[in-house]
C-alpha cells in the first residue's frame, strides 16, 4: 500500500527520525567545530567585562540602528515581518504546540487558528518580497549563491505547504500534511549545512561581537 496515508505516516515516522538524526549530527558538529576553536588570550587591558555586553548585543542587535533603518527600511521590515511570522507560526500554532508537547513534553498556550492563518499569509508575502529583493537589489544579487535560493525555496515550501494543508487545498489531506511535514524535515536536514545555521550561531556571533566591542567600552 502506497497511498497518501502511508506517505503521511512515513513523514511522521521514519523520515522524522532520519531528519532529526541528520540535524543532530550536523548541528552539533557545527557548534563543536565553532566553539572548540576558541579565542586567543587577550592581553590588552580591558575597559569593561565581556559577558554582559555580549549578552546585551545578543538581544539589541535584533533591532537595527535608526540610520540603517532609514537607509534600508525594506530590508529591515521584510526581514522582520517574515522572521516574526515564521517564528510565531512555528511556536504558537495549535498543531505545532501539540507537536512540541508530544515530543518534548513542554507546552504553552497557542494562538487562534485565524490569527495563525493571517500570519502565515503575511509570512508568505514577506518571503516573496524577500526573494524579489534578492533578485533585484544589486548588492544582494552580487553576493547571492545558489544556496540562498535553495534555502529560500525550502523555507517557502514549509510555509506554503502548511498554508495549503490548513486550508485543505490539496486532496487528500494526508498528502497535504505529509508534504508539509516532509518539507519541514528537508529544512531540518539542510539546516546544519547551509546558512540556516544562523538560527543557532547568531547567538554566538552576536555575543562575540558584543563582547569584543564591550571589552573596549563600546556598546555594539
Amino acid at each position: 500500500m502506497n497511498g497518501a496515508m502511508e506517505f503521511l505516516l512515513w513523514t511522521k515516522g521514519p523520515m522524522f527520525q532520519i531528519a532529526l538524526g541528520i540535524f543532530a549530527v550536523g548541528m552539533l558538529a557545527r557548534l563543536f567545530e565553532i566553539l572548540l576553536l576558541g579565542r586567543a588570550t587577550n592581553h590588552a587591558e580591558a575597559r569593561a567585562g565581556e559577558w554582559l555586553p555580549g549578552l546585551r548585543t545578543v538581544f539589541t542587535r535584533t533591532i537595527p540602528d535608526p540610520g540603517t533603518f532609514r537607509r534600508a527600511p525594506f530590508d529591515v521590515l521584510v526581514g522582520w515581518v517574515w522572521h516574526l511570522g515564521f517564528i510565531i507560526v512555528l511556536l504558537l500554532s495549535v498543531p505545532h504546540v501539540e507537536l512540541i508537547a508530544g515530543v518534548f513534553g513542554v507546552s504553552w498556550p497557542a494562538l487562534p487558528n485565524p490569527v495563525i492563518d493571517l500570519l502565515t499569509a503575511i509570512t508568505l508575502a514577506g518571503l516573496v518580497a524577500a526573494l524579489l529583493h534578492r533578485l533585484l537589489h544589486p548588492v544582494k544579487r552580487r553576493i547571492s549563491i545558489p544556496q540562498d535560493y535553495l534555502v529560500w525555496a525550502l523555507t517557502f515550501a514549509v510555509v506554503l505547504t502548511g498554508y495549503l494543508a490548513y486550508h485543505r487545498l490539496v486532496e487528500p489531506y494526508p498528502l497535504a500534511l505529509g508534504m508539509h511535514i516532509l518539507s519541514a524535515e528537508l529544512l531540518l536536514i539542510c539546516l546544519p549545512f547551509t546558512k540556516l545555521t544562523h538560527i543557532f550561531t547568531t547567538v554566538f556571533a552576536r555575543w562575540y561581537n558584543g563582547a569584543a566591542f564591550g571589552r573596549k567600552g563600546v556598546r555594539s
Binding site: 565553532i34 576558541g38 556571533a205
Partner: peptide, 15 residues
C-alpha cells in the same frame, strides 16, 4: 571561534 561563528551566521542579506 568568532570567525567560525560569524561565517556560520551570515545570511547574505547585504545590510
Amino acid at each position: 571561534a568568532p570567525v567560525a561563528a560569524f561565517f556560520s551566521s551570515c545570511v547574505r542579506c547585504g545590510l
